[in-house]
Amino acid sequence: MNLTLKIWRQKNPNEKGKIVSYPVKDIDGDMSFLEMMDVLNVELIEKGENPVAFDHDCREGICGMCSMYINGEAHGPDRGVTTCQLHMRKFKDGDTIYIEPWRAKAFPIIKDLMVDRSAFDRVMNAGGFVSVNTSGNTIDANATPIPKEDADKAFEAATCIGCGACVASCKNASAMLFVSAKVSQLALLPQGKVEAKERVIKMVNTMDEEGFGNCTNTGACEVECPKGISLENIARMNREYLKAMILK
């Protein structure tokens, strides 16, 4: 199929960017979206132009590096996939595809479609862990049975890949889904409960400082999340935060 790509090009953080049109030809439906981008880039390189910079790494939907806003949606029109798992069969011959970077104050653009998501790391550094040393002298793994339901819920929250699609899709550029996934995972497990209060307050404060917006419960994040992280986690974080505020 032949397509027209409208891609955000921006040389560096300081320069103004713009949307540039590129035609691509003979795209196979079995190609992934990023492979389609590879085709474009090889063409650009061989023509002597600068290829489009974009983040990508594992190309199997787990590292969370790829991050394109495709036709008005984070990771494009398909559900439950990252950009690298989006396949061209979701598009038709003659389509025009808009490709933009994540847009958020907390995710400044580095170049073209690449953004700086280190704000997520800083939120995690504030409290996204259980304070246990790696001495190897902890108690036996089976000493604390955990109800399967809790363990499963914790696991589901823990599958967050930190790609930032939630922030990109949220009209407020809020990071609540991301932060709540970690808060939930650890709040659900006995190991994490010990420092749950401190954790939620520190992580939320850092989230606010980083310039993410507020949650207005539109639910866009849950829909666009490639891992299907549930809004239930945001509610749980709200509870945890309330608990921490009242009881502390």
Partner: peptide, 24 residues
């Protein structure tokens, strides 16, 4: 040291699959 790894990871909050009895 393999056994220690599992203890360590569980202590860190790694959500391994569990059986209905709550054990790994």
């Amino acid at each position: 040291v393999s056994a220690n790894i599992i203890d360590q990871c569980v202590a860190q909050g790694v959500p391994f699959a569990r059986e209905y009895g709550g054990l790994l």
